[in-house]
Structures are given as structure tokens and as C-alpha cells.
Amino acid sequence: MSGEDKYLRSNRLPHILCPGCGHGIVMGAVVRAIEKAGLDQNKTVIVSGIGCSSRLPGYMDFDTLHTTHGRALAFATGIKFAKPELNVIVVTGDGDALAIGGNHFIHSCRRNIDITTIVLNNRIYGMTSGQFSPMTPQGHLATTAPFGNVDRDFDICELSKAAGATYVARSTAYHVAQLTDLVSKAIMNKGFSVVEAVSQCPTYYGRRNKMGSAVDMMNDQKASGVTAAAAAKLTPEQMVGKYVIGELHKAEAPEYTARYHSIVDSLKDKEMK
């Protein structure tokens, strides 16, 4: 069986996502990455918060947990810390992870707990029909930004790196083969990993901002996602609207649960002596 068949709950399909949404492509990449990484299906937990992307675990055949808005990483931390032998993957959106869940996001990076987080970035709150998120670019339109977004967006990957994540990468729904590869590498990293998966919301973001069809939006991903090598040759003006895709950061640092359990073991040793 291929990854899709083995790892999806086919009886739960079709999914609730809109036609043209990029999230199904990302979900496909995640299950293929799980297969590539060779994870035990019975020892893998997928956790999400609230939003379009957070509905994905319901279609994935693992132990799955659909939590409260923004808190996926906090629930996931409890799972991983209580049972470190489980593989824990968080599927979350830009609003879920970075607005309401921003505090948990930076502290999960800081702890370097062995959780892989896929942030599906479609730059909008899709589930509630198009309010701006922390990833909506300044000036873009949303139902709660009818005159253009006043807020600035930020860079998920730079944030993750600065907060202490030990594996950081970015790709897009268009670059799905690369995305699969990056997610599998993120899973293999023993520490906190972030993969930003740029995805398209033609229904509530693309249409309002006149970005064309889903295909147009994916063509934009193709044009905007550039490798680090290509980006190095571009001037800052040429980089406006573009973003670097690929592996962006790798670091070595003690993993949280391992460090805690080394303390537990040392206390046991002391007690035995």
C-alpha cells in the first residue's frame, strides 16, 4: 500500500476543505514523509489546534488529537513528555500557531522538545471565512482588514530559529516533493522541528486579493519560492514578495525529554548508592 492508502482514514473522506485548497497536498506530503521516515503507525500521534489545517488529523490514521485553538503544541508537549517513545507531529495553521498559539510556539522551540511542527501557512483565517492572520502581508485585504492590513507579518522560520528550534525548513504546496523530503528530515531530527508549508486559500484569501485561481496561486508559489543559492544572487528589491525554500537551519542542542530523563536516571543512581 502507498502512504496515502495506509495512512489515511479513507472512510472519513471526502474532506471538508474547499476546492483548490493547498492543505490536502500538504497532508499528502506529511503522510508520505511519515512513511519515508519509517515511523510506527501505532506509535505516532498527530495533534492539531483549530482551523482548516487543524482538521487534517481527522483524516490521518494514527492516534489523533484535535484540540483547542492555539494550544496544539501545549497538548503535544504533554503527550511527548508523558510518553517520550511516541512520535509526535503537530499540524497547525498560521493563525493557530502564531497568533493565539504564539506563546506555546516560541516556548516549544526554546525547550527543543522532540516534536515536528508543520505550519500550514495560507496567510488567512480560512475556517471563519477570511480574517487577517499574523502572516497576512501588510496592505492585503481580509474581512477584518477591509482597507488593507495595518499589521506587519513576520517570518515563521526566522522566529523559530531565534527561539531555539533545531530544524527549520520551508517549502510550498507547489514544491510537494521537496516538502515531503523536508518533513521527513524534520521528523528524523531529535529536537523541535518546524516546517513552514506555504499553502493557498483561493476561496477567502486569493479571491479577495485578486490572486486568481488555485492554479495561479500555485504558480505564484513556484515563482516566489527560491532556493538559498538563487536568493543569494538577488538584490533585496528583487527579493520582495519572494521567500527562501529548503532547509534553513539545523542545530545541535539537548532534547527536552532526554535531558529530563537523564536527571531521573541520575536520581535513581543516587538512590541505589
Binding site: A74, T77, G78, F81, H107, V264, K268
Partner: peptide, 29 residues
């Protein structure tokens, strides 16, 4: 807790502490 192999974690806020407890309970703890 660590002396008896249990897990203690100080979370970043009250909300996440409640969430972590629920996540842990779902693993059987």
C-alpha cells in the same frame, strides 16, 4: 516526581499547563 520516575513540567502559562495535563492523560498517565 522525578525521584519516582514521574514527569514534572513548568509550562509557559496556565493555559498550556492545563493542555499538557490533558495530553499526558491521553497517553494513560
Amino acid at each position: 516526581l522525578p525521584r519516582q520516575g514521574g514527569s514534572f513540567i513548568q509550562m509557559e502559562d496556565e493555559i498550556s499547563a492545563m493542555a499538557a495535563v490533558i495530553g499526558a492523560s491521553l497517553t494513560g498517565a
